[in-house]
Write a protein that binds this DNA or RNA. Structure first.
Length: 469
DNA sequence: TGAAATGTTGGGGCG
DNA sequence: ACGCCCCAACATTTC
């Protein structure tokens, strides 16, 4: 059997299309493609439950694309890689860069060690349109305002590189590879089967999602993206997180479409993903520390029953509960709902955003350290948001605006489905007759609101204002 | 990627 | 018929 000439270390680039580091390895000849499950270096940001399920199926899909030649390992990557290099006399290791702080630290060390053993390491850009260190203000500082970052930063520098075509890999499998099941990524209790019905995991599924979005979603994206009952969003986030499709492929596919507000708006959403990674790169403690230090003094609440109610979709606020139940049932939540549940957790329940971050980290298929941390800090008001006022979403008004027929709430909170739209988002305001007719007994089959919206809102505003005092 | 308070306008009821 | 008031609907300002 032909010996492998290079190792390609797959991480968050589980694809053959537009994979620059894999293409480098392929140029050497036969490739030993590996994935190493690293729960050793990840510390407190060990992959969550939903992500592991996704990873299991994505690896399965990638392995098939590689004629079942993907080698799987578990443990400390430096040890695995050094062992494989010695065993097969390999002189080149390639990978696409990752941007989580612990991965950067780990990869830097690995690169030094391998290079010291006379092994060439090639790292490429496979996950971001703009490297975080290339987009800076004129004073060389990182950006903290999205529109400036995107318009003056990204769009004014060199455009993203063009995607490269999928490679054909002559792959070699190592004899010590683990079976996929041995990575132990699937849950003991089979909570995942219903969630998987909503997704086609893997590179092919990612391409199909992009195609569906271009054909059915893009035409009215700007307006309809905010309506969680409609399917006008791309749902590419988990595919992008695991690198089943590259943002470059997405970017240029979208730009091939007719010029429109919709097209520009979708591209700017990819810009938000870049912005999150930019913030994380320049603020390595973004996942754990308030970006605005004044919030270190903020008196977050600590009622565990409130957190539990939020997590299980039992807050008594229909739009909030719908979002949290969508998350629990599908491993995903529509962006509009994410804004509302995030605002509610941090501004009404006044619970620390890190509780929300942790819950999303465990439940979301698209859990991504940069996006999760930056978005939670944005919604909590502790992060990079240009608004100079306290932004608090009203879940009743938001319901009428963005779920005007109530389809989203009725689907995920079926106990309220017979309520007329005027009361669907605020059942506590409905008369006893209306509630009775809809079969609702507040406090029995649907909770009373666990906190009063207006009161809790006003207290939060005062507390935030006190931070400046 | 907001909401609430405040301001403006115009139609209808009514003396 | 006319002016006044009320208030819904919409627009603007403020936090």
């Amino acid at each position: 059997m032909t010996q492998p000439q290079a190792i390609h270390w797959f991480r968050q680039d589980l694809r053959l299309d537009d994979n620059p580091a894999l293409a480098q390895a392929v140029q050497q000849g036969v490739v030993l493609p590996v994935y190493i499950l690293d729960d050793i270096n990840s510390h407190e940001y060990k992959m969550g439950g939903a992500s592991r399920v996704w990873l299991h199926h994505s690896l399965n899909s990638l392995n098939k694309s590689l004629q079942n030649k993907l080698s799987l390992f578990k443990g400390n990557p430096i040890e695995v890689l050094q062992h494989l290099c010695e065993k097969h006399h390999i002189k080149m290791v390639t990978w696409n860069r990752c941007y989580e702080p612990w991965r950067i630290a780990r990869d830097t060390e690995i690169k030094t060690k391998l290079t010291g053993h006379d092994i060439q390491v090639i790292s490429c850009n496979g996950s971001l349109l703009w490297e975080p260190w290339t987009v800076l203000k004129s004073n060389q500082e990182p950006y903290h305002v999205f529109t400036q970052f995107y318009r003056k930063g990204c769009l004014k520098t060199a455009p993203p590189r063009q995607p490269i075509e999928p490679v054909h890999v002559s792959a070699f499998k190592d004899s010590e590879s683990l079976a996929l099941e041995a990575l132990d990524l699937l849950p003991r209790i089979k909570w995942d089967s219903q969630m998987l019905e909503h997704w086609a995991i893997g590179e092919e599924g990612a391409q199909e999602s992009l195609q569906r979005f271009i054909e059915q979603g893009l035409s009215d994206y700007k307006k309809s993206r905010d309506f969680p009952a409609l399917n006008y969003v791309s749902r590419l986030s988990p595919h992008l997180h695991f690198g089943e499709i590259s943002p470059h492929r997405v970017w240029y596919s979208i730009l091939q479409q007719e010029n429109s507000k919709n097209r520009e708006h979708y591209c700017s959403e990819l810009g938000w993903r870049e912005f999150s990674h930019h913030l994380l790169f320049h603020h390595q403690d973004l996942p754990s520390q308030n970006l605005q230090p004044k919030y270190d003094q903020f008196p977050w609440g600590d009622d565990p029953s409130h957190l539990k109610a939020w997590q299980t979709g039992q807050t008594g606020i229909p739009f909030v509960d719908a979002g949290m139940r969508e998350l629990w049932q599908t491993g995903y939540m529509h962006n509009r709902a994410r804004l509302i549940v995030g605002s509610y957790l941090t501004k009404n329940l006044r619970l620390d955003w890190r509780h929300g971050e942790r819950w999303f980290w465990d439940c979301l298929f698209d859990a991504d350290l940069a996006n999760n941390a930056a978005s939670w800090q944005w919604v909590a008001g502790t992060g990079a948001d240009a608004a100079e006022y306290v932004r608090i979403f009203n879940p009743v008004i938001q319901g009428h605006k963005f779920d005007p027929d109530g389809d989203y709430v009725r689907h995920y909170v079926p106990e309220l489905k017979d309520l007329p739209i005027q009361h669907l988002f605020s059942p506590w305001d409905a008369s006893p007759e209306v509630l009775e007719k809809a079969g609702i007994k507040l406090g029995k089959n649907y909770p009373y609101p666990i906190v009063d919206f207006k009161t809790s809102r006003d207290v939060t505003v005062k507390m935030v204002e006190a931070l400046d005092g």
